[in-house]
Amino acid sequence: MSTWVTQLRKGLMEFCILNLLQHGESYGYEILQSLQQVEELVVTDSTVYPILSRLRKDGYLKVQVKPSTSGPPRRYFSLTALGQQRVLEMNIYWNNLQSAIEKLKQGKPNGES
């Protein structure tokens, strides 16, 4: 059970980050704190920061550096057009998958109502 949960969390992390950034730009620590509100995700810094970097490198996120009163300049992440397209597709797939699984749970895999 625990392995399945771990794998599921890993797969969902990118999905959650992109969905979070749909609502506007945010910086690493703020993104981490927002994700940590979802206890089931069990998010830590060593999972989030590398993913943010990879999503930026893959072209789904862009970064703007802005001064911070608390220390070094912050890197604000926001969705690129490619990122917006990506999260749109992911959400469609997620909804279809969720719907299909619900039908499976009810014993109606062919979509009988």
Partner: peptide
């Protein structure tokens, strides 16, 4: 990659400063 390393390290540094603040 080096650019990813730098980004991750920057994120950690600002994380610490933000948490301290």
């Amino acid at each position: 990659a080096s650019d990813e390393q730098r980004e991750i390290l920057d994120s950690i540094e600002t994380h610490i400063h933000d948490a301290l603040a």
